[in-house]
C-alpha cells in the first residue's frame, strides 16, 4: 500500500508538472517540473516522504527498461544519419573528451579538500 500511495503522489506531481507546463507555455517536460516540485516539497518539509521513497526506488531501477523502446529505434534510423557519420562520431567522442577534461580541470580548481570529505574518501577506500 505504501508503494501505491507513493506512486499516486508521483503521478499527481507529474500531472501538476504538466499543468504548469501547459498553463505557462514553458518549453519544459512535465517530469522535470514534477521533479523540481517534489524536491521543493522535501526541502520545505525537511525530510522525505516515506511512501514516495518506497515507490521511487523500484521505478528508478526500472528506468533502463523504460528507455529501451527508444533505444531500439536506433537500428531503424541508422540510414538517416548515414551522410553524417563523421559529424555524429566526432561530436560524441571528441566532444565528450573535451567536456570531461573541462569538468575535471574546473572542479579541481574549485573543490576545496575539506577535512570531513578526506575522511569520507579514506573510509571508502578501507570499506
Amino acid at each position: 500500500m505504501s508503494v501505491l500511495r507513493g506512486f499516486l503522489w508521483l503521478s499527481l506531481l507529474w500531472l501538476a508538472g504538466d499543468l504548469v507546463v501547459s498553463l505557462g507555455d514553458l518549453p519544459l517536460s512535465p517530469g522535470v517540473v514534477g521533479l523540481m516540485l517534489l524536491t521543493t516539497v522535501f526541502v520545505l518539509r525537511g525530510r522525505m516522504h516515506e511512501d514516495v521513497a518506497a515507490a521511487a526506488q523500484p521505478l528508478i531501477m526500472l528506468l533502463a527498461m523504460l528507455i529501451m523502446p527508444g533505444v531500439v529505434g536506433v537500428f531503424w534510423v541508422l540510414d538517416q544519419i548515414s551522410g553524417h557519420w563523421l559529424a555524429v562520431g566526432l561530436a560524441l567522442t571528441l566532444g565528450t573528451l573535451l567536456s570531461v577534461a573541462s569538468t575535471l580541470w574546473l572542479m579541481r580548481r574549485l573543490l576545496p579538500a575539506t577535512p570531513s570529505e578526506v575522511i569520507a574518501t579514506a573510509q571508502d577506500k578501507t570499506s
Binding site: 517530469g31 522535470v32 516540485l37 522535501f42 526541502v43 514516495v52 526500472l62 528506468l63 527498461m65 529501451m68
Partner: peptide
Amino acid sequence: AQWLMLLLGPATVALAVPLYQ
C-alpha cells in the same frame, strides 16, 4: 510500448528522491 513508456513520467519525478538524499 507507449504504455510502458508512460511510466517514464513518474520515474522522472522519482529522481527527486536520490537528489534529496
